[in-house]
Protein backbone atom coordinates (compact mmCIF):
# COMPACT_ATOMS: atom_id res chain seq x y z
CA UNK A 1 0.00 0.00 0.00
CA UNK A 2 2.71 2.39 1.06
CA UNK A 3 4.81 1.43 -1.94
CA UNK A 4 1.86 2.09 -4.23
CA UNK A 5 1.29 5.46 -2.67
CA UNK A 6 4.95 6.33 -3.02
CA UNK A 7 4.94 5.35 -6.69
CA UNK A 8 1.84 7.37 -7.22
CA UNK A 9 3.37 10.35 -5.46
CA UNK A 10 6.49 10.03 -7.59
CA UNK A 11 4.46 9.97 -10.76
CA UNK A 12 2.22 12.83 -9.76
CA UNK A 13 4.92 15.05 -8.26
CA UNK A 14 6.16 16.62 -11.50
CA UNK A 15 2.63 17.55 -12.49
CA UNK A 16 1.85 18.99 -9.09
CA UNK A 17 5.09 20.88 -9.18
CA UNK A 18 4.46 22.24 -12.64
CA UNK A 19 1.13 23.64 -11.50
CA UNK A 20 2.69 24.91 -8.28
CA UNK A 21 5.37 26.68 -10.26
CA UNK A 22 2.72 28.18 -12.52
CA UNK A 23 0.64 29.26 -9.52
CA UNK A 24 3.52 30.81 -7.67
CA UNK A 25 4.83 32.49 -10.82
CA UNK A 26 1.57 34.43 -10.80
CA UNK A 27 2.05 35.26 -7.16
CA UNK A 28 5.78 35.77 -7.78
CA UNK A 29 6.56 33.91 -4.58
CA UNK A 30 9.81 31.98 -4.38
CA UNK A 31 9.78 28.23 -3.83
CA UNK A 32 11.73 26.58 -1.02
CA UNK A 33 13.39 23.22 -1.66
CA UNK A 34 14.45 21.03 1.29
CA UNK A 35 16.52 17.83 1.10
CA UNK A 36 15.47 14.90 3.30
CA UNK A 37 18.69 12.94 3.47
CA UNK A 38 17.28 9.79 5.09
CA UNK A 39 14.12 9.73 2.93
CA UNK A 40 15.86 10.35 -0.40
CA UNK A 41 13.46 13.13 -1.27
CA UNK A 42 13.14 16.87 -1.76
CA UNK A 43 10.22 18.85 -0.38
CA UNK A 44 8.89 21.79 -2.33
CA UNK A 45 7.25 24.56 -0.32
CA UNK A 46 5.40 27.60 -1.62
CA UNK A 47 6.72 30.50 0.45
CA UNK A 48 3.61 32.61 -0.21
CA UNK A 49 1.47 30.25 1.85
CA UNK A 50 4.19 28.20 3.59
CA UNK A 51 2.55 24.99 2.51
CA UNK A 52 4.00 21.90 0.90
CA UNK A 53 3.23 21.65 -2.80
CA UNK A 54 5.23 18.55 -3.78
CA UNK A 55 7.67 15.86 -2.72
CA UNK A 56 10.22 14.85 -5.33
CA UNK A 57 11.98 11.49 -5.21
CA UNK A 58 15.72 11.83 -5.82
CA UNK A 59 18.65 9.40 -5.57
CA UNK A 60 19.60 8.18 -2.07
CA UNK A 61 21.12 10.46 0.54
CA UNK A 62 20.60 14.02 -0.74
CA UNK A 63 22.62 16.40 1.47
CA UNK A 64 23.29 19.96 0.32
CA UNK A 65 21.28 21.71 -2.39
CA UNK A 66 21.84 24.83 -4.45
CA UNK A 67 20.28 26.51 -7.48
CA UNK A 68 21.73 28.01 -10.63
CA UNK A 69 21.64 31.81 -10.33
CA UNK A 70 18.65 31.98 -12.70
CA UNK A 71 16.86 29.32 -10.67
CA UNK A 72 16.30 27.04 -13.66
CA UNK A 73 18.29 24.14 -12.23
CA UNK A 74 18.80 22.61 -8.81
CA UNK A 75 21.97 20.77 -7.88
CA UNK A 76 22.11 18.27 -5.00
CA UNK A 77 25.08 16.45 -3.49
CA UNK A 78 24.88 12.76 -2.51
CA UNK A 79 28.03 12.18 -0.43
CA UNK A 80 27.57 8.45 0.12
CA UNK A 81 27.20 7.56 -3.53
CA UNK A 82 29.67 10.11 -4.91
CA UNK A 83 26.96 11.72 -7.01
CA UNK A 84 25.44 15.04 -7.87
CA UNK A 85 21.85 15.06 -9.08
CA UNK A 86 20.49 17.79 -11.30
CA UNK A 87 16.83 18.76 -11.32
CA UNK A 88 15.97 20.75 -14.37
CA UNK A 89 12.93 23.00 -14.31
CA UNK A 90 11.75 21.47 -17.59
CA UNK A 91 11.81 17.89 -16.24
CA UNK A 92 12.06 18.30 -12.52
CA UNK A 93 10.74 14.85 -11.65
CA UNK A 94 13.51 13.10 -13.60
CA UNK A 95 16.86 13.97 -11.99
CA UNK A 96 19.97 13.61 -14.07
CA UNK A 97 22.90 12.10 -12.17
CA UNK A 98 26.59 12.99 -12.42
CA UNK A 99 29.05 10.50 -10.95
CA UNK A 100 31.87 12.56 -9.49
CA UNK A 101 33.45 10.02 -7.08
CA UNK A 102 34.75 10.89 -3.62
CA UNK A 103 32.30 12.40 -1.15
CA UNK A 104 30.72 15.53 -2.67
CA UNK A 105 29.20 17.67 0.06
CA UNK A 106 29.09 21.48 -0.19
CA UNK A 107 28.01 22.94 -3.52
CA UNK A 108 27.70 26.34 -5.19
CA UNK A 109 26.78 27.28 -8.75
CA UNK A 110 27.98 30.21 -10.83
CA UNK A 111 26.12 32.05 -13.59
CA UNK A 112 28.44 30.60 -16.23
CA UNK A 113 27.18 27.09 -15.48
CA UNK A 114 30.12 25.90 -13.44
CA UNK A 115 29.69 24.03 -10.17
CA UNK A 116 32.07 24.26 -7.21
CA UNK A 117 31.80 21.15 -5.05
CA UNK A 118 33.73 20.19 -1.93
CA UNK A 119 34.93 16.60 -1.61
CA UNK A 120 34.92 15.76 2.07
CA UNK A 121 37.18 12.72 1.81
CA UNK A 122 39.77 13.90 -0.69
CA UNK A 123 40.08 17.48 0.62
CA UNK A 124 39.33 18.95 -2.78
CA UNK A 125 37.26 21.64 -4.39
CA UNK A 126 36.05 20.08 -7.63
CA UNK A 127 35.09 22.45 -10.45
CA UNK A 128 32.84 20.99 -13.11
CA UNK A 129 30.40 21.78 -15.85
CA UNK A 130 26.91 21.76 -14.36
CA UNK A 131 25.43 20.22 -17.48
CA UNK A 132 27.90 17.68 -18.81
CA UNK A 133 29.81 16.95 -15.61
CA UNK A 134 33.09 17.65 -17.41
CA UNK A 135 35.75 18.26 -14.77
CA UNK A 136 37.69 21.53 -15.13
CA UNK A 137 39.82 21.30 -12.02
CA UNK A 138 40.43 19.54 -8.72
CA UNK A 139 41.89 22.04 -6.29
CA UNK A 140 43.52 20.93 -3.04
CA UNK A 141 41.97 22.77 -0.08
CA UNK A 142 42.01 22.15 3.69
CA UNK A 143 40.94 18.99 5.49
CA UNK A 144 37.26 17.98 5.44
CA UNK A 145 35.93 20.81 3.29
CA UNK A 146 32.23 21.38 4.08
CA UNK A 147 30.14 24.26 2.76
CA UNK A 148 31.05 26.32 -0.29
CA UNK A 149 29.91 29.88 -1.13
CA UNK A 150 30.60 32.09 -4.13
CA UNK A 151 31.20 35.82 -4.32
CA UNK A 152 30.61 36.22 -8.07
CA UNK A 153 31.71 39.86 -8.40
CA UNK A 154 34.95 39.26 -6.55
CA UNK A 155 35.43 36.07 -8.60
CA UNK A 156 36.04 34.13 -5.45
CA UNK A 157 34.82 30.91 -3.89
CA UNK A 158 35.08 30.37 -0.13
CA UNK A 159 35.33 26.88 1.36
CA UNK A 160 35.02 26.01 5.09
CA UNK A 161 37.68 23.45 6.06
CA UNK A 162 36.15 21.80 9.09
CA UNK A 163 39.17 19.82 10.29
CA UNK A 164 41.69 22.58 9.58
CA UNK A 165 40.01 25.52 11.34
CA UNK A 166 40.39 27.59 8.18
CA UNK A 167 38.71 28.73 5.01
CA UNK A 168 40.24 28.40 1.56
CA UNK A 169 39.75 31.23 -0.94
CA UNK A 170 39.77 30.16 -4.59
CA UNK A 171 40.01 32.46 -7.61
CA UNK A 172 37.24 31.44 -10.03
CA UNK A 173 39.22 32.46 -13.13
CA UNK A 174 42.60 30.96 -12.35
CA UNK A 175 41.16 28.06 -10.30
CA UNK A 176 43.86 28.23 -7.65
CA UNK A 177 43.85 28.82 -3.91
CA UNK A 178 44.80 32.46 -3.40
CA UNK A 179 44.59 32.45 0.39
CA UNK A 180 43.91 30.26 3.42
CA UNK A 181 42.57 32.13 6.43
CA UNK A 182 42.42 30.79 9.99
CA UNK A 183 38.99 31.05 11.61
CA UNK A 184 37.44 29.49 14.74
CA UNK A 185 37.28 25.81 15.69
CA UNK A 186 35.60 23.46 13.16
CA UNK A 187 34.10 25.81 10.54
CA UNK A 188 31.24 24.10 8.70
CA UNK A 189 28.77 26.63 7.26
CA UNK A 190 29.54 29.93 5.62
CA UNK A 191 27.72 32.67 3.74
CA UNK A 192 28.75 35.63 1.60
CA UNK A 193 26.73 38.83 2.04
CA UNK A 194 24.57 39.63 -1.02
CA UNK A 195 26.72 42.71 -1.74
CA UNK A 196 29.74 40.43 -1.73
CA UNK A 197 31.68 42.43 0.85
CA UNK A 198 31.69 40.06 3.80
CA UNK A 199 32.04 36.37 4.60
CA UNK A 200 30.45 34.90 7.72
CA UNK A 201 31.87 31.57 8.88
CA UNK A 202 30.08 29.50 11.55
CA UNK A 203 32.52 27.58 13.74
CA UNK A 204 30.84 24.49 15.17
CA UNK A 205 33.16 23.73 18.07
CA UNK A 206 34.00 27.23 19.25
CA UNK A 207 30.33 28.30 19.08
CA UNK A 208 31.06 31.52 17.23
CA UNK A 209 31.00 33.21 13.84
CA UNK A 210 34.14 34.63 12.22
CA UNK A 211 33.49 37.76 10.17
CA UNK A 212 35.91 38.46 7.30
CA UNK A 213 36.22 41.17 4.68
CA UNK A 214 35.57 39.26 1.44
CA UNK A 215 38.14 41.36 -0.44
CA UNK A 216 41.01 42.06 1.95
CA UNK A 217 40.25 38.87 3.97
CA UNK A 218 40.94 40.83 7.15
CA UNK A 219 39.16 39.66 10.33
CA UNK A 220 36.41 42.11 11.22
CA UNK A 221 35.30 40.39 14.39
CA UNK A 222 34.01 37.25 16.06
CA UNK A 223 30.44 36.87 17.26
CA UNK A 224 29.65 34.52 20.12
CA UNK A 225 26.47 32.56 19.28
CA UNK A 226 24.80 29.38 20.62
CA UNK A 227 26.26 25.89 20.80
CA UNK A 228 27.27 24.19 17.54
CA UNK A 229 26.32 26.74 14.86
CA UNK A 230 25.58 24.74 11.68
CA UNK A 231 23.88 27.29 9.44
CA UNK A 232 24.29 30.96 8.53
CA UNK A 233 22.31 33.32 6.27
CA UNK A 234 22.62 37.04 5.49
CA UNK A 235 19.71 39.41 4.85
CA UNK A 236 19.43 40.97 1.37
CA UNK A 237 20.54 44.38 2.67
CA UNK A 238 23.41 42.82 4.58
CA UNK A 239 22.29 44.33 7.89
CA UNK A 240 21.26 41.10 9.65
CA UNK A 241 22.86 37.69 9.95
CA UNK A 242 20.94 34.63 11.10
CA UNK A 243 22.80 31.76 12.71
CA UNK A 244 21.27 28.34 13.48
CA UNK A 245 22.71 26.63 16.57
CA UNK A 246 22.31 22.86 16.45
CA UNK A 247 23.01 21.99 20.11
CA UNK A 248 21.01 24.91 21.49
CA UNK A 249 18.00 24.49 19.21
CA UNK A 250 18.07 28.23 18.57
CA UNK A 251 18.60 30.87 15.90
CA UNK A 252 20.49 34.05 16.71
CA UNK A 253 19.78 37.28 14.85
CA UNK A 254 23.04 39.24 14.70
CA UNK A 255 23.27 42.95 13.87
CA UNK A 256 25.89 43.13 11.12
CA UNK A 257 27.06 46.65 11.97
CA UNK A 258 27.75 46.10 15.68
CA UNK A 259 28.24 42.32 15.43
CA UNK A 260 26.00 41.89 18.47
CA UNK A 261 23.26 39.21 18.69
CA UNK A 262 19.96 41.03 19.13
CA UNK A 263 17.49 38.13 19.37
CA UNK A 264 17.48 34.42 20.15
CA UNK A 265 14.62 32.33 18.74
CA UNK A 266 13.83 28.87 20.04
CA UNK A 267 13.27 26.62 17.03
CA UNK A 268 12.94 22.83 16.54
CA UNK A 269 15.52 20.28 17.65
CA UNK A 270 19.00 20.19 16.04
CA UNK A 271 18.56 23.01 13.49
CA UNK A 272 21.01 23.07 10.57
CA UNK A 273 20.84 24.93 7.27
CA UNK A 274 19.10 28.31 7.16
CA UNK A 275 18.10 30.63 4.29
CA UNK A 276 16.31 33.94 3.85
CA UNK A 277 13.85 34.97 1.17
CA UNK A 278 15.27 37.40 -1.41
CA UNK A 279 13.11 40.21 0.05
CA UNK A 280 14.27 39.42 3.61
CA UNK A 281 10.73 39.02 4.93
CA UNK A 282 11.13 35.46 6.18
CA UNK A 283 13.79 32.91 6.98
CA UNK A 284 13.60 29.12 6.97
CA UNK A 285 15.65 26.71 9.06
CA UNK A 286 15.56 22.91 8.86
CA UNK A 287 15.36 21.12 12.23
CA UNK A 288 17.12 17.83 11.64
CA UNK A 289 16.11 15.90 14.77
CA UNK A 290 12.48 16.99 14.88
CA UNK A 291 12.07 16.61 11.09
CA UNK A 292 10.47 19.99 10.59
CA UNK A 293 11.11 23.48 9.30
CA UNK A 294 10.84 26.64 11.37
CA UNK A 295 9.53 29.66 9.49
CA UNK A 296 10.94 32.84 11.05
CA UNK A 297 10.10 36.50 10.68
CA UNK A 298 13.04 37.80 8.66
CA UNK A 299 13.20 41.08 10.57
CA UNK A 300 12.79 40.00 14.18
CA UNK A 301 13.67 36.30 13.99
CA UNK A 302 10.45 35.37 15.78
CA UNK A 303 9.12 31.91 14.86
CA UNK A 304 5.92 32.19 12.82
CA UNK A 305 5.16 28.61 11.95
CA UNK A 306 6.50 25.07 11.97
CA UNK A 307 6.20 22.93 8.81
CA UNK A 308 6.58 19.17 8.67
CA UNK A 309 9.62 17.87 6.78
CA UNK A 310 10.90 14.38 6.00
CA UNK A 311 13.46 12.27 7.82
CA UNK A 312 16.96 13.73 7.89
CA UNK A 313 16.00 17.25 6.74
CA UNK A 314 19.38 18.72 5.90
CA UNK A 315 19.81 21.33 3.20
CA UNK A 316 17.62 24.01 1.69
CA UNK A 317 17.54 26.61 -1.02
CA UNK A 318 15.14 29.36 -2.05
CA UNK A 319 14.51 29.79 -5.75
CA UNK A 320 12.92 33.01 -6.95
CA UNK A 321 10.12 32.31 -9.42
CA UNK A 322 9.52 33.85 -12.80
Amino acid sequence: MLATLKRLAAAVAPLVLASAIAASAQAAAPLLYVTNQSDGSVLVIDTATDTKVATLQVPAGPAMITASPGGRRLYITHPETGQISILDGQAIGRPKVLNVSGKPFGIAAMGDGRLFVSDWDRDLLVVLDGETGEKFAEIKVGRAPAQVAVAPHAKRVFIANREDNSISVVDTDRLIVIATVKVGHAPFALAVSPAGDRVYVANVQSGDVSVLDANSLAHQGTVRVGAMPYGVAVSPGGDRVLVANQQSGTVNVVDAASLVPTYRAKVGRYPESIVMLPDGSKAYVVNWMSSDISVLDGETGRELKRLEAGDGARGLVVVPSG
Binding site: G61, P79, E80, G102, K103, W120, D121, A144, R162, E163
Partner: peptide
Protein backbone atom coordinates in the same frame (compact mmCIF):
# COMPACT_ATOMS: atom_id res chain seq x y z
CA UNK B 1 39.64 7.23 -0.77
CA UNK B 2 38.84 4.39 1.64
CA UNK B 3 41.87 5.08 3.84
CA UNK B 4 40.68 8.54 4.80
CA UNK B 5 38.16 8.45 7.61
CA UNK B 6 37.23 11.93 8.78
CA UNK B 7 33.78 11.95 10.39
CA UNK B 8 30.71 13.75 9.00
CA UNK B 9 30.83 12.55 5.42
CA UNK B 10 28.06 9.97 5.66
CA UNK B 11 24.43 10.53 6.54
CA UNK B 12 24.01 11.45 10.21
Amino acid sequence: GAASAAAHGPTP
